[in-house]
Amino acid sequence: MIESVFLGLSVASILLLIALGLAITYGAMGIINMAHGELLMIGAYCAVLTRIHLGFDMFMALPVAFVMAGATGALIEVFIVRRLYNRLLDTLLATWGVAIVLQQAIRLEFGLVFFGIHIPGLGSGLQNTGIPQVLQGSWQVAGTNLPIFRTFVIGIALIMFAVTWWIYYRTSLGTQLRAIARNAKMAAACGVNVKRINTIAFSYGAGLAGMAGVLLSGFESVKPDMGSSFVINGFLVVVTGGVSSLFGTLFASGLLGEARAVLAIIYNDVLAQAAVFAGVILIILVRPSGLFSPKQR
């Protein structure tokens, strides 16, 4: 049982990294970014490609993926999302389009690995990143073996949560971002460069997704559509936790990740996903603004 709970925590950690980015872009900036999962996928491919070509291990791939996914996010913001602020549904459609383009672009280049076909630059067969030597094996707690790699994933997610919280509540950047979330026009009238802050925030969220991709490549094979299911679950987390509440996001990713993993072990994965959806619907019915919504005036 402890093993299942631990497994759930590591799944929840990936979900947390995804949901933090969505909490910022959806919660604070009012953008539905359907391409968020593809940023995770880009992060995962960064891990694979830097391993093959540059001999990078996962530790070195994390910052590379953060930068690459962050840069992709910045481009998406500057060229597409920037024109769509205050048009929620349009952001959904436009970023969905971006998601399809990114996914198919990667599929065109690397998509045939399933069939064992050799692809220049990627090789053949299913791709995942080797887990570094120090993260292999397990450690024992109360007679239970806990995999070190999953511990590492949980650790990275918690560290990035702390960093995000610190940026959000303790830096000038975070103050400006929270002000924009509340009242963008007034923030601008106070001297906040709204466009610049939005680009930085969007790009930061994208970078977190890239890191999640690297970690995920340690347990799952890397493929062009690996991010799609995560973006849905990420939105469920944000909505359940309460839009624009970082602690709500932390709690809800723990709750949903754990529920999903434990139910999947007891019953099966399909039923687990269905149960999670049902649970989220119930929560939203009872508390439409989420579990940790800020007090409204």
């Binding site: 103050t175 929270r178 509340r182 007034m186 923030a187 601008a188 009238a189 001297g191 906040v192 005036r297």
Partner: peptide, 29 residues
């Protein structure tokens, strides 16, 4: 705003979940 135009807007438009200090410091940007 940075060139020197400030506003006390209609409805005051205070940031409700910011403290008084944080609200005042917003102007500092």
């Amino acid at each position: 705003a940075r060139a020197g135009i400030s506003i006390v807007p209609q409805g005051r438009q205070i940031f409700p979940d910011f403290s008084i200090k944080e609200n005042i410091l917003m102007g500092g940007f």
